[in-house]
Design a protein around this nucleic acid. Structure first.
Length: 821
RNA sequence: GCCGGGAUGGCGGAACUGGUAGACGCGCCGGACUCAAAAUCCGGUGGUGGUGACAUCGUGUCGGUUCGAGUCCGACUCUCGGUACCA
């Protein structure tokens, strides 16, 4: 027999050319056909495709191809998240302009993606660094400014005193700038913020509608991130002079146990107090060093300093000292906390360190507490004591009563606080979307008029240092004020790149629209299946959910329940690891997918990466296992060619052997189909196909006709089920089997319930929970008959000898457990 | 620090809702084909004891619930992701 060699290097490009010529993956809304929008998170064009990309896109493509075979009208687009820090770093290192570097990378990576044979509608490709894309972001920014959803406020950044630039948290290593090595300082600068907190409640409630389609862990992380907490705002009047310090607490029941207040080092009162207090000034100066990241603040040694200032307790009028502490965050709540050392662990440790009083006001359920003997705070609920009028109340009642008491004095109220903070979108960087604002000496901050959009980012600079070249470019900087016409200065800050990735999924529906979105967005949205890394579980996915609502509220998306959430189903894939850790250039443990594709072809690469682990788990890289995937494809290639286009009709009457094989075929269809939806465990689906191929391979060329006919049925099903994973090879094999339809749109096989039926089944017989025997029973046998047969069977006698049968448990279709004593 | 995951043979992993632990693949061992090798095909493969049918231990650690626990509950260890300016 003459079987052509399996040569993916020739076969795959030929099939890809065919797809391109036939525009096989072009999405055009077909009336009456159910739509399916499959989307993988678009890549940052770093230069080379890495294994994480291959995995991400193989998963999404398998889903897209499966849904196409299910008869859906599938949209699967691809684009580039093209603004960002690495382009500037590369520009500094190689002297290439960020735009040039980015565009070169896109061209290279597009070629790599095409070589993988992913079923994208390339006509919708977009890159976020093109004015055509980011102009709409500027447009939206202006709309939100009008609505008051964008505002300016001071916020703290990492400042590199040597490079004279703002540093990303990632660029701060052990408290020092990564390039200069200089200790990082904190600076407060005016930035633009998006009022995401106005949507906190809606974003939280929306999570309940995602229970079906999103992983529980992502929902939990988002809930915790939003961090809704009910409590009270309490005002502590300053002992001398005017004003109050406002604090938020979730434990108003412990108010009578507050022994001091702590404010953030950036708090105005701390700064004011430091003017007359050199010790304090020195402390605040020390607090001004180190990264602003939450992780570094929370893990640092907790330190504080008294302000020499006192407040009055809102209920007792007692004077409490005010401290400043390095762990109090200016950005959370009011930048001040009331401290109840007896009932809060952090306050307890702080109080012990600085010898501040500890006042017990909640009785623990077990032993009575004693301040001097405590080794940790009692943070549970309980009955109030040492609390005047409130003694004897439980924590729940006390929360209400104390909040009411404070409110009656005009010194507080019940309130809801969120951990979520407004989204600071200003970046003091060059390679990003220019913020469309103008600074005028007379008029202040003035928005760029809509007709002047886009504010185009100049791309001709050679970067010499990390400082944004926009700051030194008079052509960019100098503009007349749109309001008064006087010479004014353009805003040089650009937007956080998360802004671009917060709406691209919608733009893909209408990439050529001459508005931000048109009616096609509503047709395609929501995304039916979104696929991407867990690392985006909170930030990107929360911002995109927020943007979806902004788009709705400016009238670009319909205000109905269907469109509230952008991503109906979410699959968070695990990372690709090598030797137990993330593949990265710095660790030198990367495996270049290009080499893999060159050597084995795209089908092998895709099959391996889906077979090696379920999508949501980490994937440990293995060269050896790739060989295995390739060998499997080779076997399939030969198996199908050996059979060819024989195409016999499966007769109604089958021999037992043929019946068994047919059952195996249809069990496989059932198993694979189940794993193509829901959990998307492609590794199990592929294993089932491998098992089937092992059975099919045992059928010889001289086998009886009925068996050969079932073999043909099995091969056709197998090739169809393999096509979402190995689309190039199966396209050819479908023809080898004599099939005329286009495999891309051929219906997915369905399991025949008749074929699945079996006459007998094997039950496991356990004694005291341990496997002892196996016995076959007719499918129809009832529990009583099974129990009787087991106890009477000769094989069981040695287990029963000298024992009493205490209990017999029959699990239908599974096992029998004899409890003997 | 805080929030969320993960841990099963030599390796990647399987085990639907508490019911046969180790499917499938890799690796390894043995065999067939070959002058030989590669490729391919066939068989074996968790540990310990036994010639053997079999027995016994075994899913990160310790404890619990249950006729029965990889799966449920409690405590812990290690590890990974996020932590708001990496994307």
């Amino acid at each position: 027999m003459d079987i052509p060699a399996y040569s993916p290097q020739e076969l795959e490009p030929a099939v890809q050319k065919r797809w391109q010529e036939q525009q096989s993956f072009r999405a055009a809304s077909v009336p009456g056909k159910e739509k399916f929008y499959a989307l993988a998170m678009f890549p940052y064009p770093s230069g080379q495709l890495h294994m994480g990309h291959v995995r991400n896109y193989s998963i999404a493509d398998a889903i897209a191809r499966y849904q196409r075979m299910r008869g859906k009208d599938v949209l699967q687009p691809m684009g580039w998240d093209a603004f960002g820090l690495p382009a500037e770093n590369a520009a500094l290192k190689n002297g290439l302009a960020p735009a040039e570097w980015t565009m070169d990378n896109i061209a290279h990576m597009r070629g790599q993606l095409q070589r993988l044979g992913l079923s994208y509608d390339w006509s919708r490709e977009l890159a976020t660094c093109t004015p055509n894309y980011y102009r709409w972001e500027q447009w939206l920014f202006l709309k939100l400014w009008e609505k008051g959803l964008v505002y300016q406020k001071l916020s703290t950044v990492n400042w590199d005193p040597v490079d004279q630039t703002v540093l990303a948290n990632e660029q701060v290593v052990d408290g020092c700038g990564w390039r200069s090595g200089a200790p990082v300082e904190r600076r407060e600068i005016v930035q633009y913020f998006l009022r995401i907190t106005a949507y906190a409640e809606e974003l939280l409630e929306g999570l309940d509608t995602l229970n079906e389609g999103w992983p529980e862990q992502v929902l939990t992380m988002q809930r915790n991130w939003i961090g809704r907490s009910e409590g009270a705002e309490i005002h502590f009047p300053l002992a001398s002079g005017e004003g109050v310090i406002k604090v938020f607490t979730t434990r108003p029941d412990t108010l009578m146990g507050a022994t001091y207040l702590a404010v953030a080092p950036e708090h105005p009162l701390a700064l004011q107090a430091a003017e007359q207090n050199p010790d304090l000034a020195e402390f605040l100066e020390r607090c001004r060093h180190g990264s602003v990241s939450e992780a570094s603040i929370e893990t640092q040694e907790k330190e504080g300093h008294p302000l020499g200032l006192f407040v009055k307790h809102p209920l007792t009028g007692a004077e409490l000292p005010v401290w400043t502490a390095n762990f109090v965050l200016m950005g959370y709540g009011e930048g001040a906390v009331m401290s109840v050392p007896a009932h809060d662990q952090r306050d307890f440790e702080f109080a012990r360190k600085y010898k501040l009083p500890i006042q017990i006001v909640i009785a623990a359920e077990s032993a009575p507490l004693e301040a001097a003997a405590m080794t940790e705070a009692y943070t549970g609920a309980g009955t109030l004591l040492h609390s005047g009028d409130f003694n004897g109340l439980d924590s729940v009642q006390a929360k209400t009563r104390i909040t009411e008491a404070v409110a009656e004095r005009g010194l507080g109220r019940k309130t809801i606080n969120y951990r979520l903070r407004d989204w600071g979108i200003s970046r003091q960087r060059y390679w990003g979307t220019p913020i469309p604002m103008i600074h005028c000496e007379h008029c202040g901050v003035v928005p760029v008029p809509e007709q002047d959009l886009p504010v185009v980012l100049p791309t001709h600079y050679q970067l010499k240092d990390p400082r944004s070249p926009l700051l030194d470019d008079p052509e960019f900087l100098n503009v007349p004020c749109p309001r008064c016409g006087a010479p004014a200065r353009r805003e040089t800050d650009t937007m956080d790149t998360f802004v671009e990735s917060s709406w691209y999924y919608a733009r893909f529906a209408c990439p050529d629209a001459d508005t931000m979105l048109d009616e096609r967005a509503a047709q395609w949205l929501p995304v039916d299946q979104y696929v991407g890394g867990v690392e985006h579980a909170v930030l990107h996915l929360l911002y995109a959910r927020f943007f979806n609502r902004l788009l709705r509220d400016v009238g670009l998306l319909p205000a109905d329940a269907v469109h509230d959430e952008p991503f109906k189903q979410l699959l968070t894939q695990g990372m690709v690891l090598k030797d137990g850790s993330k593949m990265s250039k710095s660790k030198g443990n990367t495996v270049d997918p290009q080499g893999l594709i060159d050597r084995y072809g795209a089908d092998t690469a895709r099959l391996f990466i889906l077979f090696a682990a379920p999508p949501e788990q980490h994937l440990e890289w293995s060269d050896a296992a790739v060989e295995g995937a390739h060998r499997f494809l080779n076997r399939i290639w030969r198996l199908v060619h050996e059979y060819g286009a024989e195409n016999l009709l499966v007769p109604a009457e089958l021999s037992d052997e043929a019946k068994d094989l047919r059952r195996a075929v249809h069990q496989c269809i059932e198993r694979v189909s189940r794993n193509m939806e829901g959990r998307y465990h492609f590794n199990v689906a592929i294993a089932a196909i491998m098992e089937l191929s092992n059975s099919l391979m045992k059928v010889g060329a001289d086998a009886p006709t009925d068996l050969r006919a079932v073999l043909g049925e099995g091969l056709r099903a197998m090739v169809l089920m393999l096509s979402p994973f190995a689309p190039h090879m199966t396209e050819i094999l479908w023809e080898v089997l004599g099939q005329k339809s286009n495999i891309i749109h051929t219906p997915w096989p369905s399991a025949d319930p008749e074929a699945l039926k079996s006459d007998t089944l094997t039950l496991v017989i356990q004694v005291n929970g341990k496997l002892r025997e196996r016995m076959d029973f007719p499918v129809a046998a009832d529990n009583k008959a099974i129990e009787k047969a087991v106890l009477a069977s000769p094989a069981m006698q040695r287990h029963l000898e000298g024992k009493t049968v205490r209990k017999v448990i029959v699990v239908p279709g599974r096992l029998v457990n004899l409890v003997l004593g």
